[in-house]
């Protein structure tokens, strides 16, 4: 199943090669100049004395992964479903709904992974201080965990929404929450104490903070990182059942 879904994504990419490649190249450049370069003037160093442009780098990568995950799941899962295009034959194939959800999520993770690698190369050119090899190795692994969780959230939005307006409203709210409520571009230390503490324990922000811990301080809390993984696996199962109920299959 994953082979079929991946091949379809490849065909789509090939048919829209120019627009896709422009998206892949432009988005890290836009994020770098509109977030990193601007915020750097306000916060040259993070609360842990890491240069802002280095500190924000994993967050920019996560934002790029978020953008592509939204685009892929919106197209493959929401748009095709509500417009009754090509989705029905997929649901009639001999797979459980949970397996279908896993297929869609893995496909979006793999494609996002491809975009993330290109974004990392572009950002490495733009960032003044060169990134070490560890960043190139560890960031994609954490991006995988992050995309797994985020894709589940977007899949839930896709299943419960029947209108584009609803889906986009939910997505915009989530996107703002990701950017401003997860310590992506502003350190939790700058939030009101209780609010920062509360937000730092949401599974999306745990992944980023643990990535920063391992990249900048060489330590990782495996118990903490297992929380988003556990949430993602449970959420996938939940989405499978939600889809089954929605389709009445």
């Amino acid at each position: 199943m994953i082979k079929a879904l991946l091949l379809r994504r490849y065909w789509l990419l090939r048919h829209r090669f120019l627009s896709t490649i422009s998206f892949i190249i432009l988005i890290p450049i836009v994020f770098h100049f509109s977030i990193t370069k601007v915020m750097e003037n306000i916060l040259p160093l993070s609360s842990n004395n890491v240069a802002y442009e280095i500190w924000v780098f994993p967050a920019i990568i996560f934002l790029i992964a978020s953008s592509s995950t939204f685009a892929i799941i919106y197209r493959d899962f929401f748009d095709l479903r509500i417009h009754k295009i090509s989705f029905l034959p997929i649901t009639l194939a001999p797979y459980s709904k949970t397996r279908l959800i896993i297929g869609f999520i893995i496909t979006s993770i793999i494609e996002s992974f491809f975009y993330v690698i290109i974004a990392m190369i572009i950002l490495n050119i733009l960032i003044i201080e060169p990134l070490n090899w560890q960043v190139f190795l560890i960031t994609p692994i954490f991006t995988f965990i992050y995309t797994f969780l985020l894709a589940n959230v977007v899949v839930t939005f896709s299943i419960i929404s029947e209108r584009i307006f609803t889906f986009l409203s939910l997505s915009i709210i989530l996107f703002f929450f990701i950017i401003f409520g997860n310590g992506f571009i502003i350190d939790f230390d700058l939030f009101p104490h209780m609010m920062g503490l509360f937000l730092s324990y949401n599974p999306l922000s745990i992944i980023l903070s643990e990535l920063r811990n391992i990249l900048f301080f060489n330590n990782i809390d495996w118990k903490l990182i297992s929380i988003p993984i556990f949430v993602s696996v449970s959420w996938t199962w939940f989405n499978g059942n939600l889809l089954k109920r929605k389709l009445k299959q």
Binding site: M1, K3, A4, L7, R8, W11, L12, H15, R16, L80, K84, I85, S86, F87, L88, P89, I90, A93, P94, Y95
Partner: peptide
């Protein structure tokens, strides 16, 4: 309900591979 952004062949192959 064929995917308009794929060719006819790709639409058919996609379902064949799913099965």
């Amino acid at each position: 309900d064929l995917d308009p952004w794929l060719t006819v062949e790709q639409n058919i192959q996609f379902i064949g591979l799913l099965y």
